[in-house]
Write a protein that binds this DNA or RNA. Structure first.
Length: 349
DNA sequence: AAATCGGGGTT
DNA sequence: AACCCAGATTT
């Protein structure tokens, strides 16, 4: 009897959330479509990425790769180019692999079953749930960071969100609130509330549609939720690059896929000691990566011989490009900034 | 279960 | 400087 009453209360809160979403939900480009390809792309892009940050990337990506056939038949480097600056580059590599999976394993048609969607590279339980609910109406919760924050506060629930069972735990909680046949809208509503109202710090509780029911708010314990115990400490990383230049051309090489900046392009790391006489300037860049304090030293080397330049390139597997061609490559952010700075200064002369 | 993977915004 | 963001994969 008590359980029955509680479940009714859960549903009541869920409907309130949906009512709020109908009026205050964000107007986003991918809200206008139910094309699973586009929803999939946007879900990958917005993993660990704020909407404002990835919106232009989403538009450009869809314009360049409008369907799965186009994506699958493209070069990996072209996909990476459209991912430039987004970070977590394995997402772009997996996106391309998954497009080939869809062509080869699913006859070029985006899978409609949750378990099949989950088989796609780079698609985990959150993304599979999001696509399944938004595109195919599956009654399932797409639990992300917003869910953890909103649900833990509304129910003053101290379940540790760094626990590996947190997804399942809050998924069950969300399902109690989710009205029938509204999974997609419900999931989007939870994300909008978490993003616009129930923010990590200084949430706008006075404007929250759930503030009458929110236990943490009414107990004055909003800062206590969500509970997260796992903490990672930052490590230091130092890189030494050489920008090797000869008459407007310079050397680059593609990175491996086993460390940071997977498959992105970079400058040479090693160079002959005798080239030190050609160093025209050195620059140190401090760059902050997640959990990494990164220091990059760049030695700018202007060679005086075409032969040495081209021979070193071919013997060490470097590619020779100029400014114009460099815009067709994806560089790590600090190197991208270095190039932007360099070309800006030279073009002004 | 813990580590790793970017870049950017907020406080 | 710490924390978080429409998380997934590897170890």
């Amino acid at each position: 009897m008590k359980t029955k009453k509680q479940n009714a209360d859960f549903l009541y809160v869920g409907r309130k959330l949906l009512d709020w979403y109908q009026i205050h939900g964000r107007d986003l480009p991918f809200r206008k479509t139910s094309d699973p390809y586009k929803i999939w792309i946007c879900e990958i892009i917005f993993q660990q990425t704020r909407i404002e940050q990835g919106l232009n990337h989403y538009r450009n990506f869809i314009e360049r790769f409008p369907d799965v056939q186009t994506l699958a038949s493209s070069q990996t480097d072209d996909v990476l180019l459209y991912w430039k600056g987004l970070g977590y580059y394995s997402r772009a590599l997996n996106l391309h692999k998954a497009a080939l999976q869809i062509i080869n394993d699913f006859d070029g048609v985006f899978p409609t079953e949750h378990d099949d969607i989950l088989k796609l590279k780079g698609v985990g339980k959150y993304t599979a749930a999001a696509v399944s609910s938004i595109c195919f109406g599956k009654h399932i919760a797409a639990v992300d960071g917003n869910f953890y924050r909103v649900l833990s506060r509304v129910f003053a629930d101290d379940f540790d969100i760094s626990n590996s069972k947190a997804f399942h735990y809050f998924s069950e909680l969300a399902l109690k609130m989710m009205p029938e046949n509204e999974a997609g809208h419900f999931n989007e509503a939870m994300m909008d509330l978490g993003s616009e109202i129930c923010k990590p710090r200084n949430p706008l509780c006075e404007s929250c549609p759930l503030n009458k029911e929110c236990l943490a708010f009414n107990l004055g314990k909003i800062p206590n939720f969500p509970v997260k115990t796992k903490k990672v400490k930052a490590t230091d990383l130092e890189l030494h690059y050489s920008f090797v230049e000869f008459e407007g051309q310079f050397l680059i090489r593609q990175r491996k896929d086993d460390f940071i900046w997977k498959k992105l392009y970079e400058f040479p790391i090693e160079f002959p000691v005798e080239w030190e006489q050609f160093i025209t300037k050195q620059k140190t860049i401090a760059h902050k990566l997640t959990h990494k304090n990164l220091t990059i030293q760049i030695s700018h080397i202007r060679l005086e011989s075409q032969d040495v330049f081209t021979e070193f390139a071919s013997e060490n597997g470097f590619t020779i490009i100029n400014e114009e061609e460099s815009h067709l490559k994806s560089f790590p952010k600090p190197l991208e900034n270095y190039l932007t700075n360099l070309f800006k200064n030279t073009s002004n002369v």
